[in-house]
Amino acid sequence: MSEPIIQVRHLTKTFGEGETAVHALDDISLDVHPGEIYGIIGLSGAGKSTLVRCLNLLERPTSGSVMVDGSEMTRLSDKELRLARRNVTMIFQSFNLLMQRTCLKNVCFPMELSGVHKAKAEARARELLEIVGLADKADAYPAQLSGGQKQRVAIARALATDPKVLLCDEATSALDPTTTASILSLLKDLNQKLGVTVVVITHQMSVIEEICTRVAILDGGKIAEEGEVTDIFSNPKTDAARRLVYPGGVGENLLSGSRTIRVAFNGGTAYQPLIASLAIDCGVKVNILGADTHNIDGKAYGSMLLGLPEDENEAAKALSYIRSQPYVTAEEVESHG
């Protein structure tokens, strides 16, 4: 495998001193490879925002090393760091656009900072707005845009300096599911077309599932689990991972015995008929062990944990039926009884 573009080693971050000290990050090591979409997931307070800010040194690590694109970020001078940051840009949950500038001027902003000639910057900014699908909003102000449009402008702005890495800090957490899906597909697209490495910070498993290749699960400032997204989903080994993967906080005891599958809904038409039609069409009854699903505009999002029947044939029938449904994915999870 190629050299990692981000290499974090034994990173710790402590806020405060003495007895009141908070260990936000505790001995974090991870590698992100060029061109991948890497997820960092955790519940609130797990330290994920601190971790992502340590990658571009918005937070200075207490100890440890952060190598990005071959340079040790913690050892750079202020000036070198400012240059390095053009290579590792960031988008935010609250978009953080300049409210007194037009979209075009927002996208021009990072180029202005680095002294790009105005005409050249504007031409590039128009190209970028075109890429994110907002060419017609160049002269609009952020206050006139929807949340999704604001995030698109923020993405265009983050790409203005041709970064190698794009950090996304809860970039879709303030958006509705439909807009989230469109922003995620844009990120995926940019990752494929421009080859930009993307690091996604989120508390939503659905985001990881949608676009990430690998994921690190952060819990209490430590990496609880790290690996391919499909592996973690089908076989979460730690409590922290199970809490995130299994809907509705299903306890491990429920998972013993029969085969269990996790069904994810990615915007198909309502989920209730699936279970009903499974019973009607296949004559198979399944147990709903847990569910965390949302019906938004008549579309289903979220996931469900189903206990399959003991009978092997029936179980296989149910699984293939569920898998044949549009906008639904299912995978078997190993029991931990």
């Binding site: 918005l58 940051r85 053009r86 960031m90 935010f92 609250s94 656009l97 900072l113």
Partner: peptide, 21 residues
């Protein structure tokens, strides 16, 4: 908004640029 300041920092703005721009 502190977030806007942070965004400018993340883009490599100097202190002077953050004040002025």
């Amino acid at each position: 908004d502190a977030g806007v300041i942070e965004a400018a920092q993340s883009m490599g703005a100097s202190t002077f640029q953050i004040v002025w721009k």
